[in-house]
Simulated assay, not measured.
Amino acid sequence: MTDPRVPDGGRPLVARLAYPVRRALAPAALELAEQVHRLNDEVGRLRDDAERLRARAEDAERRLAEQEERAAELRNGLFESRRLSLRIAELADVVTELVLPLHDREIDPAALRRLRPDTV
């Protein structure tokens, strides 16, 4: 076996054999290095875009949760409003029966019993 450090023109054997390969592949390697650099830049931009989209998605989820809470409050308010409207209608019926002249009254005891205790 030959010693790669044997001076043949002052260069080791490996360097002498690698030189023609490097000359043939150097333009392709430089082009690939440039492509790698461009791809790294694109990956960086894509990561930035993904982070921005992630932040927007988190913000949208937070706003959706707030809207769901608000909708629940409004729904509860609507139910309370309906309950109070029914109570006002019941009270209006009672007042109407009390205000009518005595000869026009037809107070139904069963109707009075159907009223809730807090309206009588």
Rank of each mutant, 00 (worst) to 15 (best):
E31H: 09
R82Q: 12
D8A: 06
L115N: 10
D93A: 12
E106I: 00
E61D: 15
V14K: 09
D49R: 13
Q67A: 15
R63Q: 15
V95D: 10
R63T: 11
F79T: 05
Y19S: 07
L100K: 15
V36A: 12
L30K: 13
L39C: 07
P27T: 00
E69T: 14
E42T: 11
G44V: 11
D3S: 10
E42R: 15
A72G: 10
R11P: 00
R116L: 08
L115Y: 02
V120R: 13
V99T: 08
L112K: 00
D3H: 05
A60H: 09
A33R: 05
V99M: 08
R23E: 08
L86Y: 01
I88Y: 08
D3E: 12
R105G: 04
D8L: 07
D104E: 14
A89Y: 01
V36L: 12
E97F: 00
L91W: 01
L32I: 09
I107A: 01
L25I: 03
D41S: 05
L78N: 02
D118G: 05
D41V: 03
L102P: 00
R52I: 05
D118C: 01
V6F: 09
P101M: 02
R82S: 03
V6I: 13
A24E: 07
A26S: 07
R11F: 08
D49M: 04
D3C: 10
L78T: 07
N40L: 10
L39P: 00
A71Y: 07
E69A: 15
R70Q: 14
A33Y: 02
R62S: 11
A55H: 09
A71V: 14
L64E: 14
R47I: 00
G10Q: 03
A111C: 00
A50Q: 09
R82T: 03
R45W: 04
R114C: 03
R52D: 13
R105H: 01
F79R: 12
V21I: 11
A26Q: 09
A65M: 03
Q67R: 14
L13S: 06
E90D: 13
R116S: 15
A24F: 07
D104W: 00
D104S: 06
R56S: 15
D93M: 10
T96H: 11
R47E: 12
P117E: 07
E58S: 08
A72F: 05
D3W: 02
N76K: 12
P109F: 00
V21F: 01
R5S: 11
F79I: 08
R22Y: 08
P20S: 02
R70A: 15
A65S: 12
R87Y: 05
